[in-house]
């Protein structure tokens, strides 16, 4: 690991100021991606700004039809939260399936969403549930937030404060996990909402998480696994690697989507 200066701000304003003042600053939330990246010397920030002591970024609450989760809430706390289990149980199960217990004790929802790893679980929930990403500057709709692999709408000195999930009528997340890392080879989140059905796919897209609009239309007309019969997902634009070819991932999307719909009804 290359040397860096370390900062522990106590407020969002101080964190943003430290980030703006640094030559090449990087925010660290749970560090479950960033610290391994630093250890491999794949990143060499001048400054590390740790958000762990920013209390205003923590906590889970409800606001008129939405579930609101603070950016620094760890996966284990989302998985165990009574509020999350009651309002969006699919989200609690998704959080409980990330990595392993020790990773879930450190990794955070804000860190995962800001990192936008193409095989991460949370982006599927944020996009599939049509969440709103709140930052220190503005609110960003999920549809505008994810902009390709490891790329988001966040400005260089912008940080996620909370994520607001509209509570759906029903939702389920089903993934085919890599057996070693538990990252999603393919993960599908299906949500039935007042405004129609949303289907978000993670793990598969070469540009990261995306919506399967043909599936959404079919499921909005008939919300049953059968409605997905005959919808072929093209393998163009999907990842192929040692874990799964793009053709296999295309096939898995259909299988995982049907299972997710079956889990909803």
């Amino acid at each position: 690991m290359y040397a860096f200066d370390y900062h522990q701000p106590a407020s969002v304003a101080d964190a943003a100021a430290a980030l703006a003042a640094a030559a090449d600053g990087k925010l660290v939330a749970g560090g479950m991606t960033l610290i391994p990246t630093l250890k491999q010397r794949l990143a060499s920030p001048s400054d590390l700004i740790d958000l762990a002591r920013v209390d205003e970024l923590k906590g889970i609450g409800e606001e008129s039809g939405s579930l609101v989760i603070g950016a620094m809430t760890c996966h284990a706390d989302v998985a165990a939260s009574d509020i999350v289990r009651r309002s969006i149980p699919a989200l609690a199960r998704l959080a409980g399936g990330i990595g392993d217990p020790q990773v879930r004790n450190r990794g955070t929802i804000g860190g995962s969403v800001a990192n936008n790893d193409p095989a991460a679980d949370y982006p599927a929930a944020v996009l599939g549930l049509g969440a709103t990403i709140r930052t220190n500057k503005r609110d960003i709709a999920a549809d505008d937030f994810f902009q390709g692999m490891f790329t988001t709408a966040l400005e260089p000195d912008e940080l996620i404060t909370r994520i607001a999930f509209p509570v759906p009528q029903a939702a389920a997340y089903v993934k085919f996990p890599n057996p070693a890392s538990r990252y999603a080879v393919v993960g599908v989140l299906v949500a039935k909402t007042g405004g129609g059905v949303r289907v978000a796919i993670t793990g598969a897209g070469a540009d990261g998480v995306f919506r399967a609009t043909e599936m959404e239309q079919a499921l909005s007309a008939d919300f049953s696994p059968k409605a997905l019969d005959g919808i072929a997902i093209p393998s163009d634009g999907l990842n192929g690697d040692i874990h799964a070819s793009s053709e296999y991932r295309a096939h898995l999307i259909g299988v995982m989507a049907k299972r997710a719909v079956a889990a909803c009804v």
């Binding site: 370390y6 522990q8 560090g31 479950m32 610290i35 740790d50 284990a76 004790n105 450190r106």
Partner: peptide
């Protein structure tokens, strides 16, 4: 009181 992987945490984070 929570189990973590100490190879993926900085000593300064445990201050």
């Amino acid at each position: 009181g929570r189990s973590v992987k100490s190879c993926t945490m900085l000593a300064v984070q445990a201050d």
